[in-house]
Amino acid sequence: MLALSLALAGTALAETDRVTPVQEDYARNCQGCHRADGMGAFGSVPRLRGFVGLFTQLPEGRDYLIRVPGVVWAMLDDERLTRLMNWLLATYSPEELAPDFRPYSVDEIRRARKRPLADVQQVRARLIVELQRRGLVPPGEDGLVSARRAE
C-alpha cells in the first residue's frame, strides 16, 4: 500500500514522490505533532501507531476519538475529516480496531464536532484504565510513555 509506506517513511520521501490527498490532509493537520510515522512525542503527544485503534473497542472511546480538540478544530470540512479519520485508523492502527468496527460516518463526525470534550485528559485517563482492565493494554501503557522519545 503506497499510502502506508509513504506515511511510515516520514520525511524520507524522494522529491518525485507524490502524496495522496488524504496523506496531505494528515500532513497538514496531524503530522506536525503525531509525526509521519504516527509515533507522537514522548510525554506530550500520544502515539497513534499500534495504539489509537484500541479506543474503538470502547463505545465511549469511539466517541472520544472524534471529540478531541485536534479533530474537532481541524481545518477540514466534515467530509474530508471523516475520510482522514478512517484512513488514519486503517493506516496506523488496523490491528487494534474493534472486530466490528464500522468506519465513521460524516454525520457522526459532524455531530461530534459540535461537542468538543471539555475534560480530554480526564476522559482519556478513564478510558486507559478501562483498556487496562480489559487487558487490552499492559499496566502503565497510556500511549504517551511509549511515544517516540527525542532522538
Binding site: T11, R18, V19
Partner: peptide, 11 residues
Amino acid sequence: HCTTAGLVGRA
C-alpha cells in the same frame, strides 16, 4: 535555537 525546512513530499 533555530528552524529547519525539511522536504515531506510533493503535494
